[in-house]
């Protein structure tokens, strides 16, 4: 599942349209939009709200190694090397108030310029520029990273920011900022559509084999420990090239009447799997 977090409705709207997302009316306080493979959440401004919305989104999507969390939004550019309307990926997040730093894994080359980002509790102005140890600024990313990292790995996170100002703007500039953001969409929206499935290997034990294992454990009245040991032995057997679990099937009909017999049968089953 792709989990997209934006702070503002204006940042979400072009994505909702481009990805054909529908509002989930059951989520009232935190706006959520979904499709079969995407869940978008609008957090509101600030890292606290961003962290809460991220947690809410992961909860709705369900924890999975296949999840991708993408934070997209507008940002202020600190350095002149980043042009207005340019989209960048973030390789470092610096939380200004705590001083902590966070690092998403940079495994995939998205062909966007990279930048370090500072997350601030208040809007940053040009007066702050000399003390800023970052290329761009926002008010959410550190909260999103910290919340998401409770549920996923750093390689599952991607932060895309579009520079819409140089830390100097008034309410009159909002429409121009929005235009910068929307015009950059073609540059980075394909990344959202083509998120790589990093870790999609099938489980070693198939669902049918899991059912067989449970049935054997039940019919043989295996203890919890023995059930775990059997599972380990089956995993070993399959990873080492064992084709199927036919050798377990005779045990389905076995209902040992006492512990000693059960333990003997269990040992011979493990030995057969270990061969």
């Amino acid at each position: 599942m792709k989990i997209i977090v934006t702070a503002l409705r204006q940042e979400a709207r072009p994505l909702i349209d481009a990805l054909g997302l529908k509002q989930d009316s059951s989520s009232r306080r935190i706006p959520v939009y979904t499709s079969a493979d995407t869940l978008l959440v609008i957090s509101g401004i600030g890292k606290m709200y961003a962290g809460i919305a991220t947690t809410h989104a992961v909860h709705l999507a369900g924890e999975s190694k296949d999840n991708h969390l993408i934070n997209v939004g507008m940002c202020g550019a600190v350095v002149d090397q980043i042009a207005l309307g340019e989209a960048v990926t973030v390789n470092k997040i610096w939380d200004h108030s705590s001083g902590r730093e966070f690092f998403p894994d940079m495994l995939i080359n998205h062909s966007l310029q990279e930048a370090s980002l500072g997350t601030f509790d208040q809007p940053v102005t040009t007066a702050n520029r000399p003390i800023l140890a970052c290329d761009i600024v926002d008010m959410e990313a550190s909260g999103i990273f910290q919340a998401a990292h409770l549920f996923m790995s750093p390689h599952q996170m991607l932060f895309i920011k579009v520079a819409t100002d140089y830390l100097e703007f008034s309410s009159d500039d909002y429409s121009q900022m929005q235009r910068y953001y929307e015009q950059s969409l073609d540059e980075w929206a394909p990344i959202l559509r083509n998120c790589e499935q990093f870790d999609s290997a099938d489980p070693v034990i198939s669902p049918e084999q899991e059912t067989l294992l449970s049935s054997v454990a039940e019919s043989m009245r295996l203890t919890q420990t023995q059930t775990h040991q059997l599972r380990d032995a089956v995993t070993r057997f399959l990873v080492r090239g064992g084709a199927n679990l036919e050798i377990l099937k005779p045990n389905l009909a076995t209902k040992p009447k006492h512990k000693t017999l059960r333990n003997q049968l269990f040992e011979s089953m493990i030995q057969a799997l270990n061969k």
Binding site: K92, E101, F103, D105, L107, S116, H149, S153, P154, H155
Partner: peptide, 20 residues
């Protein structure tokens, strides 16, 4: 990329060794 302490990158929790 600058980092205060190398462990902030190297020792993050939940990293995937094989993907990295």
């Amino acid at each position: 990329v600058t980092v205060k302490n190398y462990k902030d990158v190297f020792a993050r929790s939940g990293q995937n060794f094989q993907l990295q």
